[in-house]
Design a protein around this nucleic acid. Sequence first.
DNA 1: AGTGTGAATGTAAATGTTTTCATTATCGTA
DNA 2: TACGATAATGAAAACATTTACATTCACACT
Lengths: 325, 325
Amino acid sequence: MVSIKDVAKIAGVSIATVSRVFNSPQLVSPRTRAMVYSVAQKLNYIPNYSAKTLRKSIVGSIIVLIPDVSNLFFIDVVHGVQDYAESRDYNVLMGRFNISIFNVEKYFQLVKSKAADGIVLATGHDRVYPKISDAQNVNIVTIEEPYMDNPYVYIDNFKAIKQVIDYLLSKGHRRFGFIGFKSERSRFTAFKKIIKENGIEYDEGLVRLGEETAEDMPESARIYIKNLVEKKKIPDAIVCASDVLAAGAIKWLIKSGLRVPEDVSVTGFDGIDIVNLVTPSITTVDQPRHRMGMEAAKILINKIEGKDFDEKVRLPTRLIIGESA
Amino acid sequence: MVSIKDVAKIAGVSIATVSRVFNSPQLVSPRTRAMVYSVAQKLNYIPNYSAKTLRKSIVGSIIVLIPDVSNLFFIDVVHGVQDYAESRDYNVLMGRFNISIFNVEKYFQLVKSKAADGIVLATGHDRVYPKISDAQNVNIVTIEEPYMDNPYVYIDNFKAIKQVIDYLLSKGHRRFGFIGFKSERSRFTAFKKIIKENGIEYDEGLVRLGEETAEDMPESARIYIKNLVEKKKIPDAIVCASDVLAAGAIKWLIKSGLRVPEDVSVTGFDGIDIVNLVTPSITTVDQPRHRMGMEAAKILINKIEGKDFDEKVRLPTRLIIGESA
DNA sequence: AGTGTGAATGTAAATGTTTTCATTATCGTA
DNA sequence: TACGATAATGAAAACATTTACATTCACACT
């Protein structure tokens, strides 16, 4: 490996000068600068990352942790984190954790060992939190829900669900089903509250809460629809807490001989690409996924660099009208 | 930051001993070991990653580069890389490159600067290759197609497409359409060759090659179907080079009043989750995406550590019978 | 001539490890 | 008791940087 020493020796200057050529060129005379630069080029010199980060306190890389890689919602968030990080010259390490495996700690260790500067934790699972024993001195930004005193980026689930239900009410629907997650309760809570506010009685039999992984969702939707069909208790409209759930529900409704939206309306949540790939296309709540990632990364990097940062950022959602409702 | 020095001082031993407690405990007497360990625990000591990797030559982290994060095929590959890397105690940095932006070089720099040990390059775009000026001394494993003399993991596209066409022929189809990518030609080449071998004439008008990003695919499928419908030239079966293309084709066929598979059969390629979310479910070629990532990571890490590794690994595909053909 | 200023460069310390080599302690065996 | 082998530990070099501080030099001004 060619080091700064080799460059210095051949260029006939001190290593300090070589370092300056790369880090603060304005401190070096144009002549030496050009000379050192050409020697470095010729030797194919590239500064060693470990040595650099050992000396400086900031590493220049952040971690983004998502629960489920096969869920496009999170992928879009990662995308956003990457885009912003890139603009600030940071690398992004992507990790994932299984709700069962809880290997979140490992990533905390990585930050503590200064392999990375901080973490964007993209999740709403409160169940993950208690397992994190020691999150002191670790820069964290969460998405969806706050975690301890850390800054976070979120959307207004209540408002979003209200928008959905108002839309469904305007279409004349009166009997509402809901399918969501055990781990994410705020959309479910919003659903219950809002239908009650509209004088509609809440029917436990029209509701199901399942697991949140992309693998489990279609199965959860299948069971839900199967139960409704068997009990011959078909709601006018089914509100789903994610697009994948909605796609699954639509699929099984059609398989059961029901028409969407003529017999049953279905709405999704997230706004990922599949809403336009299925037939009928899904009416859904568009979350600014990419932007959520960008904002989270922005807060994190500002915090890392000791700059001002927002304690919390709320981003707007938008109802996308498809053909499924 | 608490360093190895602090631990050594408080434990009353040398820093060498502390280092040994963590790296080769069998060299340290049980007594000292336990003592040092408890001091380290109390002080919350975590070895500094940069210092460690500066001293050792292996960093313990690899990069996986994919062209398009919103394509679930690549995400599954990344998943595989991560799973294998984890088993060998490596971290994974995920990068993506846009066909237009070509920021691949950046990741090569990262390896050259010893921020990572090597790269899994998951792509079939030969167009990327020429842009990589200097790939010497960088450990690379590619997926799908070879790049220079580097090892790679691949599938037999010809055999896979043959399996698809044989299946369609067995269902009595005789007029074949194809929709694929400008950048990935081997499936297209296989398609042309195989239908000719079966005495079917190749019709340029039933073929379309578009861009490969997940964003562009549905649009490409829409245009393709629109053209067919306008020209009233509807094939018996449409072979698609990806599942997303197939989903798009199905969607627009249905919108045009055609039934799938009654009027037109459609097949996909990849085997990603959406094949079961759309109606009808897609008949497709299942690629061992996760395993492809695993194998690539295995080759790479073996190469990094100077162990024996396979120069190329071919993995089997499998026809999944759905409802779309 | 002497002094002060600022630019350009160099010296050396500091960052936190791992590991080679040397030293000391322990213990069994002759 | 002495010796050798082995186990346990320490001292210090090496890894490749950045940067505080020191030095040198040219030049302008008194």
